[in-house]
Design a protein around this nucleic acid. Structure first.
Lengths: 250, 250
DNA sequence: GCGCGACACGAACAGCGTTCGTCGTACGAA
DNA sequence: TTCGTACGACGAACGCTGTTCGTGTCGCGC
């Protein structure tokens, strides 16, 4: 009864409560005396694997091998691969600092959070795919959400707009990183489906101008964007639409 | 030599040219006299499968079974599962109508395209995951991109902003549909990881108010959004940041 | 010293994408 | 008409995935 494996349907609400209760406990208590297999060790191995070879290489078997054991051993500490994914995303979110709200700098503060999350995602190529699926299910992600919400509310953004904008920002950051991790695959020459900018521009230029006049006329703009300029552009535009009315009324 | 299977590295530029050249040919010419296995029949079976059981069920084996054959037979007409995915995404994009640019209604016209694409994506649950990977590699997707670009340029949006906004809009629509297809899984009771709105609100309310003050104070806004209100909100905000200066200057 | 429970693990199952080699057939050449 | 050939279709298999069952083995409490 104690170890009863939940039917994957009724229990999660209880687990959620347990997670919340554990908030005040010793965070991530890892006894240094014990050498055996742990959730922490599993996560470390998983992170190392993703960092080195990308999210596609994150396999229960490979994690187990990295830990010097078989795949079955992992399932005593992690219910699923999906749960492992969620744990990784949670840890990534936990690493993102949330600044104290400063209403004068709310846009910049939002960008700081998104940038930090982006960099953390990009450090583990492809991991954002898991984030797209698991985003709102983690307490650590909720911590980020809470931080953003506080910043936006303090800046005077209406609650509904703030809530929806946070959702959109999360979604965009994840999708951006996912796409970036596809484009930016240095080693794996196996599946070079995505093109670098020059090849893309070349392809655009090959298009028939009568059918794609705007595209061929603006190849440069379509393929422009150094570093994370597009990232900044999109989030700035998104947040710009939220600008509250600071002056006359309240 | 004629049937030389490309090393997956050098040829795609030629294939791209071939696709462009085929633009003027008889579109999707499918001889009604021949009953054998065709790319068209493969795509039809694939669409039916995804529509009925979601993108996860889209398997080479299942497509082959639906066609009354073995999986190996498909590889004569489709190089990869990835190529099959791209074909499906292309077909989906091809179904989205692109309106004639009307500078007075540019925002609404952009929304029309995005809504049509969204509905097409949502008709095939989870297919947008493939879109996130394959977006800019298809001529049909480029047709949409061209249409949006023309609309934005005609409205006076600066080219660089237009190009980047189109990218962001594509990305958002795909990510939105991907997330929606996760939340909205009617039949499969196997993996009920994602919660409906009530359960989510309940979880939010269980949070400790001292740690998540803004979240618990605005549960209603965080879980609100009937239908596609969030979709409209985000795209409107994104496009709102592009509003050109129609008046004084040029 | 003994027993019991919890943890670890080897082996296996079902399914995936993909490839190899063979088979059948249908068409062009003689 | 008959043969040769070439090509589309396919059965079987490979290596991989996530996951589970039953067994083993270790260490702690009594």
């Amino acid at each position: 009864m104690a170890n009863r494996r939940a039917p994957d349907r009724a229990e999660p609400q209880d687990e959620w409560a347990a997670k919340i209760a554990a908030l005040d406990g010793p965070g991530r208590a890892e006894r240094p005396g014990k050498p055996p297999i742990t959730v922490g060790r599993i996560m470390d191995a998983a992170f190392a694997l993703v960092e080195a070879e990308g999210f596609e290489a994150l396999t229960m078997r490979r994690v187990a091998t990295a830990l010097g054991t078989g795949p079955a051993s992992l399932y005593a500490h992690v219910r699923n691969k999906a749960e492992l994914d969620e744990l990784l995303i949670g840890e990534v979110c936990a690493r993102v600092p949330v600044p104290e709200p400063d209403p004068a700098r709310w846009t910049e503060q939002m960008l700081e959070i998104c940038r930090a999350l982006r960099d953390e995602y990009l450090r583990y190529p492809g991991i954002s795919r898991a984030a797209l699926a698991a985003a709102p299910n983690s307490l650590d992600a909720l911590r980020l959400s809470e931080g953003m919400l506080t910043i936006l509310l303090a800046a005077g953004v209406p609650p509904r707009s703030a809530a929806w904008a946070i959702d959109a920002a999360f979604l965009y950051v994840s999708a951006y990183c996912f796409e970036a991790s596809l484009r930016y695959r240095p080693d794996s020459d196996a599946d070079q489906r995505v093109l670098d900018r020059d090849a893309l521009a070349e392809r655009y230029r090959m298009l028939p101008p009568d059918r794609f006049p705007s595209t061929v006329a603006h190849v440069r703009e379509l393929t422009s964007g150094e570093g994370h300029e597009r990232f900044e552009f999109t989030l700035t535009a998104l947040l710009g639409g939220l600008a509250p009315e600071p002056g006359p009324g309240a």
